[in-house]
Simulated assay, not measured.
Amino acid sequence: MSLLSKLRLVTVDVTGTLIAYKGQLGDYYCMAAKSAGMPCPNYKRMHEGFKAAYTEMTVKYPCFGHASKMPNIDWWKMCVKDSFMRAGYEYDDATFERIFRRIYSTFGSSAPYTVFPDAQQFLRWLRNNGCIVGIISNAESRYKDVVLPALGLIQGSEWDFGVFSGIAGVEKPDRRIYEAALEIAAGGGGGVAAAEALHIGDSMRKDYAPARAVGMHALLLDRFRTPEAEGWRRAGAAVLPDLVAAREWLIAGAGEEEEPPVEAGSG
């Protein structure tokens, strides 16, 4: 019996699974600085500065400031300003405002993203085969309201519901985001059983391990041939190169996964 025939729900990660970034972070920060009449920042310093600033913001104000009721734009303004400062760039208020508005607008549009060519067809195929399709993403509300629709991944056409960390107030790898998806999928009718659900993502820590910890089936995509993928396989994970292969895996009769790896946990 195929795994597909056992499933009522398939949840899918977004970045790295359905969509990818075009270019590098430095491209967009450079364009924003130049639009305000400033020199292009150093790409490497900018990338490292952003990583550090973003990590600190997610610790201080998790889920894009959800618990503290911080407006999304304010969260990003603090993050972007700290990114530039860590990279060694400090601007007067008026200049920074012009730079920030350009960055915020860009990442709230389809411009910096590309959809993997197998994504839309795979999601539609799941829905046509009777599966509820959910999105689980550590992303803020603009992914749901603007970015995904602008990329042609539309609620009601490609997916049925989404659990976005900036809206739900819980983020991967916390198992509660998966439990919320199981509950939402049934529309208040008692939830979908974890054994009837599959999660597809690209991170052992954020996708595979917590999904398995709640009892869901799980699948990892290795679109970019990451060095970690061999370790994922050794840990018992099902790892495939893309959603075309995932479709065949679901039809052919996927084997039962191993017990959740030691990394599993609520995070």
Rank of each mutant, 00 (worst) to 15 (best):
I136E: 01
K44S: 13
W75F: 10
V115T: 15
W125C: 02
L9S: 00
H199E: 04
A209I: 00
R247L: 00
V262I: 13
C40M: 03
V12G: 06
M57K: 03
K172R: 13
L148A: 01
A94E: 14
Y29K: 07
A252C: 11
K77C: 13
F64P: 13
T95Q: 06
N42E: 14
V163D: 01
L198I: 12
F122C: 08
E257D: 13
W232N: 07
R98E: 15
R223E: 01
M1V: 12
W232Y: 14
D74M: 11
A181E: 02
G88M: 04
W76F: 11
A139R: 07
D174C: 13
M46P: 02
Y28Q: 04
V12R: 10
P41K: 00
I200V: 13
G26C: 09
C131W: 07
A150E: 08
A185E: 05
Y113N: 10
A211Y: 07
G88Q: 06
A211H: 05
F161P: 10
M46I: 11
F50S: 07
A36R: 02
W232E: 05
D174S: 10
V244N: 15
V163F: 07
I103R: 06
G166V: 09
N128T: 00
S110L: 02
Y43C: 11
L126Q: 04
G265E: 07
Y54C: 00
A87N: 12
K6P: 04
E140S: 12
W76A: 11
V146K: 15
G191D: 05
T226N: 10
D13A: 08
P173I: 07
A229M: 00
G16T: 00
H217C: 09
E258G: 14
L126I: 11
A186T: 13
R247P: 02
S5N: 11
V10F: 06
Y21E: 05
F100M: 09
K51H: 11
